[in-house]
């Protein structure tokens, strides 16, 4: 019989080793590479330049700082929209949870979450075609608004990206908050009813406090997703027009794999990494705390 200790190691060690090679090594190597002037198509000719890549990215160039700004603008706007709409939707589905069809409707509503982001981008690229798309048609015939290039002008493009992102993820916030609402003890509602409290009072004094930890969890998880936002940008705007929808992940991809400047690209990857680590630390602490309390339920 294999000793207890070895048995236990066999359970855990392979995963750790695997992650070390595939996940940790790359991040360390990125840090190393970021100190070089290096082109992917001629790696043997790379040379050390120290912090130059970071300096250029952050202080000499306007594209990367804009990409950081855009990432957070998109993240915060999307998440805000998702929370507000998600809460309203959760309330509606909460109220009708005992009715027929409510399950079916909910299942259809949450489908965008798992949909391939690439496909989400394509669906909207098709719908938002400025002259021939269905969106323009409806806007024109129903509201009499002249079609314009939703993805071709700075502000509309930014708004479109936020809208597409929110469209995909509002259902996530909805089911998360729905799960939160389910945890509100029925007695509290009853008590509020007896006190004659209005809906606003119920919302602010009973519901919001009890779902706050769910909201926090949602925000953190979505923030992590938004930092990596790539697919939708890649398909719809490619960072344009100008640099108005340039985000960190797309910029890094572009630098590393279209210009092949892997030194500079690694520097931007490392900066994303640092930002992610901060968010991740918050997320992991939060999840660990939740987990120790045997979950949110």
């Amino acid at each position: 019989m294999i000793s207890e200790k070895i048995q236990k190691l066999l359970f855990i060690l392979p995963t750790c080793l695997f992650l070390l090679v595939i996940s940790i090594f790359p991040f360390l190597y990125s840090v190393y590479l970021s100190l070089f002037q290096a082109k992917l198509t001629k790696m043997h000719k790379k040379f050390f330049i120290g912090w130059e890549n970071y300096y250029v990215l952050l202080f000499e160039d306007d594209v990367f700082p804009t990409a950081i700004k855009n990432t957070f603008v998109i993240a915060f706007s999307s998440i805000t929209i998702e929370i507000i709409l998600g809460f309203i939707m959760a309330k509606i589905f909460f109220e009708i949870r005992h009715l027929k069809f409510s399950n079916t409707l909910r299942t259809i509503t949450i489908m965008p979450i798992m949909l391939t982001p690439l496909c989400v981008g394509l669906v909207f690229l098709y719908i938002l075609n400025p002259t021939l798309g269905i969106f323009s048609y409806i806007l024109d015939t129903v509201f009499g608004i002249e079609p314009f290039a939703y993805l071709g002008e700075s502000l509309p493009a930014k708004i479109s990206v936020i809208a597409i992102n929110s469209w995909q993820w509002t259902p996530f916030m909805m089911i998360l908050l729905l799960a939160g609402l389910m945890t509100v003890p029925n007695e509290q509602y009853e008590a509020a009813k007896i006190d004659g409290a209005n809906w606003f009072h119920v919302m602010t004094k009973i519901e919001i406090p009890s779902i706050l930890s769910f909201v926090l969890l949602g925000v953190v998880l979505r923030l992590i997703e938004c930092i990596r936002l790539f697919d939708i940008i890649y398909i719809t705007t490619r960072g344009g027009p100008g640099i108005s929808t340039e985000v960190m992940a797309f910029f890094t991809y572009r630098t590393e794999f279209r210009s092949f400047q892997v030194g500079s690209g690694s520097a931007s990857a490392v900066i994303i990494l640092i930002i992610s680590l901060i968010v991740t630390t918050i997320a992991v602490t939060l999840l660990r705390r939740v987990e120790k309390n045997e979950g949110l339920s």
Binding site: P26, F27, L33, E256, G265, I272, S276
Partner: peptide, 10 residues
């Protein structure tokens, strides 16, 4: 939670 793009080139 780390972004995959940061691991791609290595």
């Amino acid at each position: 939670m780390l972004p995959p793009v940061a691991a791609a080139v290595p």
